[in-house]
Simulated assay, not measured.
Amino acid sequence: MGSEVSAGRTVPVKFSLSGDEGPDIRAPHAPSSRWVACSSSAPVEIVESTASQSGLTYLPATQEYQYNWKTQKAWSGTCRTLTLDDGTVRTLNFQFS
Rank of each mutant, 00 (worst) to 15 (best):
S49R: 13
N68G: 07
W69E: 05
K73A: 15
E45P: 07
S54D: 15
S52G: 07
W69T: 03
S54G: 10
L56Y: 07
S52D: 02
W75G: 00
P60V: 14
R80L: 08
N68L: 15
G55A: 08
Q53I: 09
S54C: 10
A61S: 14
E45V: 06
V47R: 13
W75N: 03
Q72H: 08
G77F: 14
T81P: 15
Q66P: 05
A74N: 07
Y65L: 07
T57N: 10
C79I: 03
Q63R: 08
P60Y: 02
R80I: 12
E45T: 07
Y65N: 04
N68D: 11
Y65V: 04
T57V: 12
S54M: 15
P60N: 04
N68A: 10
A51W: 01
L59Q: 02
A51I: 13
T50R: 04
W69G: 08
Y58V: 01
Y58W: 05
R80K: 11
T62M: 15
T81A: 06
S54V: 13
E45D: 09
Q53P: 09
Y58C: 01
C79N: 11
S76Y: 07
S76H: 06
R80H: 08
C79E: 14
S52E: 05
S49F: 14
T81K: 13
E48R: 04
L56W: 07
S52W: 09
G55P: 15
G77N: 06
T71D: 05
E64S: 09
G77Q: 03
T81S: 13
P60Q: 02
P60A: 02
S49Y: 11
T57K: 15
N68S: 14
T57Y: 04
Y65G: 03
Q53V: 11
T81Q: 15
L56I: 08
T81C: 08
Q72E: 12
G55V: 06
T62I: 11
Q72D: 13
K70E: 13
R80A: 05
Y67R: 07
N68T: 10
R80S: 04
A61P: 03
Y67S: 02
L59D: 02
S49P: 15
G77R: 06
Q72W: 03
E48A: 07
G77W: 09
I46T: 06
T78G: 02
Y65Q: 06
T57A: 06
G77T: 05
S76T: 01
V47I: 10
S52R: 12
